[in-house]
């Protein structure tokens, strides 16, 4: 295996030394490109109190290509589908090599605070979010309690 680029080493060191509040990202023991991530549900959001597990993988041509990120914990959110895939512009066409793991995770945390039902990935969720927001928020809280609070 090719040696790890300096950029990835630097980023990993900084994530360990100055962790982002509410986010933990730890590289896998056997693969330094694979990170175990935990994001806490933001305050004043339906996800408050939950701990959400994600996986993050840095592809071969990182940072020229965006990292691959996926929710492992089930979550009721209009921009995240059943498989945990995330609809976020900086992970797609708005990716810039100057962005980092830290900025990506912060953006995901911000997405939990501000769902965007007009650019949906999970259609049924987005639909309810638009038609009946209070019921959608109730569902999101229920899912958070059921899937993101134990363990």
């Amino acid at each position: 295996m090719a040696s790890l680029p300096r950029r990835i080493i630097k980023e990993t060191q900084r994530l360990m030394q100055e962790p982002v509040p509410g986010i933990s990202a730890v590289p896998d023991d056997s693969n330094a490109r694979y990170f175990h991530v935990i994001v806490t549900g933001p305050e004043d959001s339906p996800f408050e109190g939950g701990l959400f597990k994600l996986e993050l993988f840095l592809p071969e041509d990182y940072p020229m290509s965006a990292p691959k990120v996926r929710f492992i914990t089930k979550i009721y959110h209009p921009n995240i589908d059943r498989l945990g895939r995330i609809c976020l512009d900086i992970l797609k066409d708005k990716w810039s090599p100057a962005l980092q793991i830290r900025t990506v995770l912060l953006s995901i945390q911000a997405l939990l605070s501000a769902p965007n039902p007009d650019d949906p990935l999970a259609n049924d969720v987005a639909e309810l979010w638009k038609v009946n927001e209070s019921e959608a928020i109730r569902n999101a809280k229920e899912w958070t309690r059921r899937y993101a609070m134990d363990n």
């Binding site: 041509d61 020229m64 708005k94 810039s96 090599p97 900025t103």
Partner: peptide
């Protein structure tokens, strides 16, 4: 940005079929 990074950036973009639309590497630029 350093020359090697520019080269890598261009190669990755070209492999995705992008040519006249390759932008600067800085965020939001």
């Amino acid at each position: 940005f350093c020359n090697e990074c520019w080269t890598m950036h261009f190669e990755v973009q070209i492999n995705q079929g992008i040519s006249t639309g390759i932008a600067c590497m800085a965020r939001d630029c």
